[in-house]
């Protein structure tokens, strides 16, 4: 499984570039709307966590589906179907998508914090939410990407399909992020987020064979 991920890293240049470019463009747009176009600071703190996650979500939607779509488009999917067990394939893709998402977060978040002058009261919680939330994004997106890779109109369909699935994740992540910036401990929402991550992973592992193989 790790082998699969490593091999994909070969072509990371294209994937990461697109992803990073998209993320930064969105980031700049968002910052403009908050800064020069003037949003009141007091409103800011409530809204800022949401915007961060929106940037992450849209970047993921722009960059992640490639992992499966490309296999279908370059027709390497046939060779994969003949060689790999579904679980190995899914785990490999998931790992790869995870690294993409985490890399994205590492790149984007510091800039976001800088440009919005957002102060984080509990940095550990903040990092934890980013990690757990990022994981959920990657896991959910991986399975949905596998689904849409075999359908038409892949780009728009991915957003349409993934949003309802990721909605609970987003809400949880935003709430916890907000808590992290404000300094409250987050409470019971954290285990639920982790539970979501676990559930999505298990569901992905169980449903992937049905999606991948005829």
């Amino acid at each position: 499984m790790f082998v699969k991920e490593w091999r994909c890293e070969y072509r990371t240049r294209y994937a990461l570039n697109t992803l990073a470019l998209f993320a930064f463009t969105t980031l700049v747009v968002v910052s403009f709307s908050l800064g020069p176009l003037g949003v009141d600071r007091s409103h800011g703190t409530a809204v800022l966590p949401v915007l961060l996650w929106i940037i992450l979500l849209f970047s993921v939607a722009a960059g992640l589906p490639r992992t499966f779509v490309q296999e279908e488009e370059t027709q390497t999917a046939m060779a994969l179907r003949l060689s790999a067990t579904p679980s190995a394939l899914f785990c490999g893709k998931l790992l790869y998508n995870l690294t993409l998402v985490f890399a994205l977060e590492v790149l984007v978040t510091p800039f976001y914090l800088m440009m919005t002058s957002l102060e984080v009261a509990s940095p550990w919680l903040f990092a934890a939410v980013l990690a757990a939330g990022g994981y959920g994004l990657a896991a959910g997106s991986t399975l949905v990407a596998a689904i849409i890779a075999q359908a038409r109109s892949k780009g728009t369909l991915f957003s349409v399909l993934s949003f309802p699935i990721l909605l609970p994740l987003l809400v949880l992540a935003v709430e916890l992020t907000r808590g992290a910036t404000a300094g409250d401990p987050g409470g019971v929402a954290v285990p639920v987020l982790l539970l979501y991550d676990a559930t999505i992973t298990v569901a992905g592992l169980m449903l992937f064979p049905a999606v991948w193989n005829p």
Binding site: R7, Y10, R11, T74, T76, M78, A79, R81, L82, N213
Partner: peptide, 16 residues
Amino acid sequence: RRRVGVVAPDLAFYAE
């Protein structure tokens, strides 16, 4: 599926 050996015109490999 995993046991057979297949040669087919649309079998493709990783170009990179």
